[in-house]
């Protein structure tokens, strides 16, 4: 059986500057992968390639053995910026993400998601009335509303305070428990990567490939202060410096 998501020999460059050279990664169904690496090394670009937003210059991205050539509902992406529709209020922005299958129970699903990201009282606000952290939570709720088979999250918690961040990490885990999406998560936060994922993938310098993969073989729910996590943390830090 082949992997659910396969990134095979992928190369990508922007106007002469090569970002990836022969990048390979196989992700199993239901796996949570964290992508870490220096700013500008191509993490967002990689998510765009997997989502089918940008073409690869060589190699292939496959989901369920089918090459990705264009974006579709199967792969969901939460962008690094919230990208909310300014003319829709919070509730309608979240509802925008609903998959056709969930449209019938729209009100309940949206209310549930708003509850999870703690925005029930802000449902009627417009994006211009939101703080950065609120906007990011709306974007997360919108991405989750789509229930894609592959869920790509680009620094989903970067604008949040430490407490909210931990709560939403647990929300992502809960969603993962509920329907087992395959997840690729970009983060700068090493603790977050280790707390959430099955494997942490370190991208190297440009032209980047996979520099190192660190496996986190701990059952969930994990203890954030687990000694094994702290050990892996040291290993990761060494890898990144």
């Amino acid at each position: 059986m082949s992997s659910l998501l396969t990134i095979e020999g992928v190369s990508k460059s922007f106007s002469g500057s090569q970002i990836f050279n022969d990048l390979n990664l196989a992700v199993e169904a239901g796996e949570i992968i964290s992508l870490v690496g220096k700013s500008g090394c191509g993490k967002s670009t990689l998510l765009r390639l997997v989502a089918g937003l940008d073409p690869v210059h060589a190699g292939q991205v496959r989901v369920n053995d089918l090459p990705i050539t264009a974006p579709g509902r199967q792969v969901g992406l939460m962008f690094q910026e919230p990208r909310l529709f300014p003319w829709l209020n919070v509730r309608d922005n979240v509802a925008f993400g609903l998959s056709p299958a969930r449209k019938s129970s729209k009100d309940n699903v949206v209310a549930g998601l708003l509850e999870e990201v703690d925005l029930t009282d802000s449902a009627k606000l417009l994006p211009r009335q939101l703080s950065g952290g609120m906007a990011q939570r709306v974007a997360l709720a919108r991405a989750l509303a789509g229930e894609p088979e592959v869920l790509l999250l680009d620094e989903p918690f970067s604008a949040l305070d430490a407490f909210t961040r931990m709560r939403l990490q647990d929300l992502v885990l809960k969603v993962w428990h509920d329907y087992r999406p395959t997840m690729l998560l970009v983060t700068h936060d090493i603790e977050e990567a280790l707390y959430l994922s099955d494997r942490v993938v370190v991208l190297g310098e440009k032209p980047a490939g996979v520099q190192e993969i660190i496996e986190v073989k701990l059952p969930r729910p994990r203890n954030r202060n687990d000694v094994q996590l702290l050990e892996l943390r040291g290993q990761l830090l060494a890898e990144l410096s």
Partner: peptide, 21 residues
Amino acid sequence: RKLVEVGYIFGLKPFALIYRI
């Protein structure tokens, strides 16, 4: 363009892309 990309990601058909975004 960034908003149009959100439409692509959620699989909007061309007609929906036009009137919704």
